[in-house]
Design a protein around this nucleic acid. Structure first.
Lengths: 118, 118
DNA sequence: ATTGGTAGTGACGTTTATGTAACTAAAAGC
DNA sequence: GCTTTTAGTTACATAAACGTCACTACCAAT
């Protein structure tokens, strides 16, 4: 999502969205909740993301200071990503979103049944 | 954001994003936290959204069952939007995002100062 | 008859986000 | 010296999201 960044906008929610917006960032961060993960492992755990996009998103998250990239000078290369201290502050949002996801799935399924008369 | 909808995906977070994704939905919902608001008032309170996009986003939120549209049969027209019961379940996410927005703004400002050596 | 106010819609164009396919480097194992 | 492995990059193409501008309908007041 395009950045507004420097100014905190009218609504801090929009500001948050500039960091978490997009299809993949929340799920990537979700994978890092339990500690450092290698690039290749992320790619496997999130099968529908292309490696190119994964690289890009990780780079943005790193530039935004939410994650830390550890590159070990080995061959073949080994690179690990982990939540930074700032990145830890997204955890409550991720948890709330997780909770919401489940509730919505249940509620909206019901809503649809009603709406369609099924 | 494009929908995955029917199946709850590997990560409920992604599922949540299909409902809250995009630049405007969270801020629109944020405006409805305190009760029903008219279309025109939303447009004024969120000055940077075009009325067309506002209409579209409201329609999607309504289709997703998150908000309710009340159209009073008056001339000139009066239309009000409010959070549905399902919509209320986003409140914790909005609050967590609000909190995060403030924390991030402060933290990332500091991060940037460090990163640029200023 | 013209203007003002409300909540839109439709055609069209731009920007942002995401995707695919082909390619690189450098060491290790055969 | 050919292949495998990892973490990428580059060029290119498509899809999704967002935007502008012009327009509608209806009634009331001027």
């Amino acid at each position: 999502m395009k950045k507004l960044k420097e100014d905190i906008p009218a609504c801090p929610i929009v500001y948050t969205m500039t960091y978490l917006g997009g299809k993949w960032k929340p799920i990537i961060l979700g994978r890092l909740l339990k500690g450092p993960v290698r690039f290749g492992k992320l790619a496997v755990q999130i099968p529908d993301i292309s490696r190119k996009i994964l690289t890009e998103q990780l780079k943005e998250l790193e530039e935004d200071g939410l994650i830390i990239r550890h590159s070990y000078n080995e061959k073949p290369p080994r690179v690990e990503y982990e939540l930074s201290e700032i990145g830890q502050t997204v955890i409550p949002v991720l948890l709330a979103m997780t909770e919401l996801g489940s509730k919505m799935h249940e509620a909206i399924t019901r809503h649809k049944r009603v709406a369609t008369g099924a």
